[in-house]
Design a protein around this nucleic acid. Structure first.
Lengths: 253, 253
DNA sequence: CTTGACCTTGACGCAGCGTAAACCTTTATC
DNA sequence: GATAAAGGTTTACGCTGCGTCAAGGTCAAG
C-alpha cells in the first residue's frame, strides 16, 4: 500500500508538516514523487517511520536518529546506553531543582512569618553595616557583594539557623585556610576541602551558584585589595592560595 | 557602584550577550546609558539579576520570570508550586523513558540471542501470514498494520513471553468487548477498561504510542470493512462501540 | 599614537516543527 | 460537467535563549 502525507500522518499520529520536515532534512524520504508532485510513501518508509518515532520518544535528537537507522553498523546498544546516562543526569538535575523549589516554597510559606522576616532582615542589615565599617564603606559600592547576598537571603527567606550555620562555616573556612596553607599545595586534600566549604558557604546566600561565578569571585578576591586584606589577615598570601584551591577544585586549573 | 556589561557579566557568571539579550527583551534594563552608548548597571540591577538567575536555575522561562519579578502582586508561591508540578511531570516522563530504554537495551543484549531472535521473527511472520489468509492479503497492503507491528516487535526484541501475553490480552479484549457492549454505554466502567486494555495491547507492539495514533486507529477500524468484520464477528456493531469507548477514554469525545 | 580590551548594533544559526500564504490536484457532491 | 471541499505543494517567518561572527566606535595603557 502507498500513502500520501496525510494518510501516513494519520496512521502514525504525527503532523504532515513533520513528515515534510523529515523529508527536507533527509531523515525520511518518500519512496517516490508522483506526477503531481505528491509525496508517496511505501511500506518500507512506514517501518522506518515507526523506528524513528520510537527513538524520538526517547528524546534522542533527529541527527542521532539518522545515525542509528541509516548506518547498519552503528552500535545501537551503545547509543542507547549513552542516552540512558544522559537521561539519568537529567533526572538528577531535576531532583536538585525540585529540592530547591521545595525549600523556597517552604521558606516563603512557613519558615519565618512576614513580620519576623522583616525584623530579621534588619538584623542582617546590621551585621553588614558592621562589615562595612570594618572594611570600608566602599566595599559595597565596589562590588555590591553583601548587598547581593542580603538580597538573596531575603529572597530565600533564610532562617536564623541557616544564618548561624553560615557564620560557623565562615569560621571553619578561616581555620581550614590556615591549615591548608601550611601544606603549601592548593591541590592537597585539605585545600580542596577548603574550596568545597567555600562553595557551601557561597550557596547559603547564592542560590544561583555557577562555576563561572565562583571562579570570578575567587579572582575578585585577589584583584580587590579589600578582599585580599580580609583573607590575608589570617595568613599572608592566603587569598591567592584560596583562589588557586578554588580554581583547581572547579577543574579550571 | 556601577558596572559595565563585562563587569556585571563576570560578577554574575553569565555572558555579556545574555545581558544584552535581557535588555533587549526588557527583562533587565541598565540603569542608564552613558555618553558613549555603554550600558551602565547599578545596585538595583545587580539585585534584580540575582533574582532572575535564581528563577532561571529553576528552569522557569524568561517570560514567566518577568511576571514574577515585575509584578509585585504576582503570587510567587503559586508560581513556584505550579512550576513544581511541571517538574514532577517531567520527572515522571523521564522515569518512563528510562524504563523503556532499559527494556530496549535488555532485549538487545540478553533477552533473546541473535539466532533465536531470527527464528522468532520468522515465527511471528508465520502468525501474520495466517492473519493475512484469514482477512485477505490486501489488509497488509491497505494499512500495513501487521507489518508495522512486526517491525516494532523486531525492534524491541519482544520476548516470546511478551508475545504470548499480548495474545492473551487480545482474547481478553474480545471478551470485554462482548460484556461492555451489553451495557450499551461506551462510557461505562467496563467499556473504559476495554479501551485501556486496547491501549495496553497496542503498546506491546507500538512503542511510539500517542493518543492521536490511537484515535486514528480506532477510526480506521470503523472505516475499513476488514477491521470492522474482525471486531464485529464477536458482536454486531462492536467495532463502532469499541471506537466510541476509545475516543471517550482518550477524552476526545 | 598605537595597541588591545571593551563597548555598540545588527544579523544569522541552532531544533523541531507550527502556522500562515499563495497556489495546484483530487475527490465528492450537485 | 461544474463546483466546492479537502488535500497536496513550496516558501518563509516565528518560537527560546542565547552563541557567534561582522563591522565599527571608545578608552586606558605603553
Amino acid at each position: 500500500m502507498e500513502y500520501t502525507v496525510k494518510k501516513l500522518a494519520q496512521l502514525s499520529g504525527i503532523s504532515g508538516r513533520t513528515l515534510r520536515y523529515y523529508d527536507q532534512i533527509g531523515l525520511l524520504k518518500p519512496s517516490r514523487i508522483n506526477s503531481s508532485g505528491y509525496r508517496i510513501y511505501g511500506q518500507k518508509e512506514v517501518d522506518l517511520l515507526q523506528q524513528i518515532l520510537f527513538y524520538r520518544e526517547l528524546e534522542i535528537g533527529l541527527e542521532e536518529i539518522m545515525n542509528i537507522i541509516q548506518d547498519p553498523h552503528f552500535n545501537q546498544t551503545e547509543a542507547l546506553k549513552d542516552h540512558y546516562k544522559k537521561l539519568m543526569q537529567k533526572r538528577a538535575h531535576l531532583d536538585n531543582l525540585m529540592a530547591t523549589v521545595e525549600k523556597t516554597i517552604g521558606s516563603f510559606e512557613g519558615g519565618i512569618p512576614m513580620q519576623d522576616k522583616e525584623k530579621f532582615a534588619a538584623f542582617k542589615e546590621n551585621m553588614m553595616d558592621e562589615n562595612e565599617k570594618k572594611y570600608g564603606i566602599e566595599i559595597r559600592e565596589k562590588y555590591g557583594e553583601d548587598t547581593v547576598n542580603a538580597s538573596n537571603a531575603k529572597l530565600r527567606g533564610m532562617s536564623e539557623e541557616d544564618f548561624e550555620a553560615m557564620n560557623k562555616l565562615s569560621e571553619e573556612i578561616f581555620l581550614l585556610l590556615e591549615q591548608a596553607f601550611a601544606t603549601g599545595d592548593p591541590a592537597s586534600e585539605i585545600a580542596q576541602e577548603l574550596a568545597a566549604k567555600h562553595k557551601a558557604w557561597l550557596m547559603f546566600s547564592w542560590p544561583s551558584y555557577s562555576k563561572e561565578a565562583h571562579a570570578g569571585l575567587a579572582e575578585m578576591y585577589v584583584a580587590d585589595e579589600r578582599f585580599t586584606a580580609y583573607y590575608d589577615k589570617q595568613v599572608a598570601g592566603g587569598t591567592k592560595f584560596l583562589r588557586d584551591a578554588i580554581l583547581i577544585y572547579l577543574g579550571i586549573k
